[in-house]
Write a protein that binds this DNA or RNA. Sequence first.
DNA 1: ATTGGCAGTCTCGATCCGCGAGTGCTAACT
DNA 2: AGTTAGCACTCGCGGATCGAGACTGCCAAT
Lengths: 345, 345
Amino acid sequence: MEATPLDERKQQILKAVISDYTVTGVPVGSQVLAAKYFIALSSATIRNELADLVGTGYLQQPHTSAGRVPTDRGYRYFVDFLMDPEAASPTVRRTVKQAFETAPRSVEGILEKAAMVLAQITENVSLVTAPETSEARIKHIDLVSLESQSVLIILVLEGNLIKQTVIRLDRATSQDDLSRMAAMLNRKVKGQTADELLSRLSQLGPDRDEQRQILERVIESISTHQAQRQSVVLHDGVRNLLRHPEFVEVNRLEELLELLEQGAQLAGILQQVAFDKDVEIIIGRENTSSGLRECSLVLTTYKMDERVRGTIGVIGPTRMHYGQVVARVRLVSQATSELLGPLGN
Amino acid sequence: MEATPLDERKQQILKAVISDYTVTGVPVGSQVLAAKYFIALSSATIRNELADLVGTGYLQQPHTSAGRVPTDRGYRYFVDFLMDPEAASPTVRRTVKQAFETAPRSVEGILEKAAMVLAQITENVSLVTAPETSEARIKHIDLVSLESQSVLIILVLEGNLIKQTVIRLDRATSQDDLSRMAAMLNRKVKGQTADELLSRLSQLGPDRDEQRQILERVIESISTHQAQRQSVVLHDGVRNLLRHPEFVEVNRLEELLELLEQGAQLAGILQQVAFDKDVEIIIGRENTSSGLRECSLVLTTYKMDERVRGTIGVIGPTRMHYGQVVARVRLVSQATSELLGPLGN
DNA sequence: ATTGGCAGTCTCGATCCGCGAGTGCTAACT
DNA sequence: AGTTAGCACTCGCGGATCGAGACTGCCAAT
């Protein structure tokens, strides 16, 4: 099972097997391959090659006397070396464009729309993480007096991302005082990131106790990844999975749904997507989660500007049309980034 | 099929059939009934009664020589007249309490937690609508300058519910001017509802054009039900459905998922839940949506105070333990209301 | 009105069988 | 040495068959 380099013909055969299997979902045999893809060769020759590919672990057969099916390793080789680059069709581009036209001009709205349209055009489950805000610049702070000593802190970040948190002060403070304090804070913190704020916190004199309390809470609020909602990962399109024959057995679906609905574990996986790479593909058992044993992830990132970013992608059966999905994930990621960009100012 | 009043014994038999079927999921026959529930009677007698109940439409048999299964009509009679009131068990109460202890102190966070725990304790899909805010009082307004003539309006309503919207003014306005305007607006609108605001809008002189623009947008923002997110209905626990044998056929699930994931149609149904009634139950084909043909809804409302309310409930197979589900929906609704209450001040 | 008895109905699961698809091997061929 | 035709063999799948079991409806007796 060592890294066997494949000669040209074996590559072509592997590619043909994956193409065919992706479409039909049925193990593909030597005769079909000879007829559809390799007219110059006989089925016997192909049989020999197939046997080799099984031996080196790129293909497997469900049982003796059945056709061949790609293994995770086969898919990996395919996406790394064999896959033809595809471009999103005009129809798909139009779908995406139209979807975003009706999106509300808020970060949450746009991300939700992105999840929706990505699920639609890939016919899989889409995943979108909330943007990472620890390096986002603060645009505005407001303080609202609640009952007695409670204060509602409202924070506007780049991209009009709003965070709120409630703080309890040591003494009662009127709304007028709070407004004054907010005005002062605004002058001080505007345009800073949470990190910058943290380093400047120590410069405050000990007499500014309330300001310090508030700022500490502000930093905390930015750093905790979750916004006002608990779920860190948006998803859409679970209904699409039901159309794939690999999910007729419900127990597979159940594990997957659990993963999606609690989100925490998934968030961990998505966070590890490298920001520098283009599109990252994780196939089958390459996933650590057992629920994703028979699934693949196609992930990339979106940006709001250089400092605020998140992950976007899809999750589907390992038997998916990788070329197409990659193109479409990339398309939606770009469109999302473009749309989020101007919100920043 | 006219409204036949059922005599005492028929009622008891209907009740027994539903009890048994709810637990086993298997059509229940006369012998089982005689042995488990009516030791004084022979199976032959029960057979006669069963035949009557089929004739009047409360029961049906999947095929000749099978046991009986409740019809929608049977369930309806059961929940209206026969169902024993149940109380949530201490274990369940504790689960709910503990879940809410870790909830963030924001409306969204609490509602999400409510959906989560309700799904968990009912082992069905939970539904929670965002609170209806058209009659909520305004607590605070803030205006933030974006690029050139764009202004971000931030609105804090009762319960620290935050709404945001972007407006474009006729002329560029500095943040200082906006802050002054915000202070003035705060004095004017604090404690008012959108409706009250609307009626007072006409009193503004024509010279206050900008204020008018802003206030119009404020009203609109409050009235549109959706907050910053598109989905009006939260849901959780789809994974629970897969455990029910009625959903092993995936196509049923697909219709249901579609309904859940687009939400609009569902929102319509949930909005019609009467606020004065206690718990509303909608059974099988009583639903207008075809996707809910084999599902029941158990719904009630929650309140933040007298003016802000939403719907909360579950959706599951018609074969569910209604008594228990009703008790648990009621429990979570009450707990949610209690938790949301103090947020208001 | 209730009940025991009984014949009849229908589903469900197990078993069996034959078809067809596909393979691996061998021997011949280029 | 690589390729190919031929062939025997394997195995899954779908359909047909069948018997067991679960219930029923009906009838006659209580």
